[in-house]
């Protein structure tokens, strides 16, 4: 056990936890932020994607102690009212089926657009490679990212 200080969605938290706990479980079990999902636990599915700074990371494999002072943004903090361009595009294209993978897809897409505001199809495919959707919404995801990039 150790004291871990983290800043998530603009809010500072001080927690008494095992510092090796992955960020995903800190968010879900300790901060009641369940938007980031557990899908594989080994950085292979992307369901748990959040931003550390502006970078999309797999929170299931990042020990919370590794964060240092970097700020975390989760899907809950992406926008206040769900009106981030990526979220709006997701609604416009009615992307989700079961919806489970979508928070991770959205967070990854938002980070992509931040670093590359006008991605080509190939850019999207390679940036989104780590995010699995068992329901097969890939074509809609790509269309939504294109809409959000406009």
């Amino acid at each position: 056990m150790a004291t871990v200080n983290i800043k998530v969605n603009g809010k500072q938290h001080s927690l008494e936890i095992d510092p090796s706990t992955p960020l995903l479980w800190v968010l879900r079990d300790h901060l009641n932020l369940v938007g980031a999902k557990y899908g594989c636990g080994i950085a292979m599915c992307g369901s748990c994607t959040v931003h550390v700074g502006d970078i999309a990371i797999r929170s299931c494999v990042m020990p919370v102690s590794q964060l240092g002072t970097q700020e975390v943004t989760t899907i809950e903090g992406l926008s206040e009212k769900g009106d981030h361009p990526v979220q709006k595009a997701w609604i416009e294209h009615d992307v989700p089926q079961c919806g489970y993978c979508q928070a991770g897809q959205i967070m990854n897409a938002a980070a992509l657009l931040k670093s590359n505001p006008n991605p080509s199809d190939e850019d999207i495919e390679s940036a989104m490679h780590g995010n699995i959707c068992r329901c097969g919404t890939y074509t809609r995801i790509k269309a939504a990212i294109k809409t959000a990039s406009k």
Partner: peptide, 28 residues
């Protein structure tokens, strides 16, 4: 065509799924 009624909650990461259920005093 009508939009998915859970769409807004899904894109905002609201607790919708079984794994998202948390209760006071709950064990895992």
């Amino acid at each position: 065509s009508q939009k998915n009624v859970d769409g807004p909650d899904i894109v905002m990461g609201k607790p919708l799924f079984g794994l998202d259920v948390y209760r006071e005093g709950m064990l895992v």
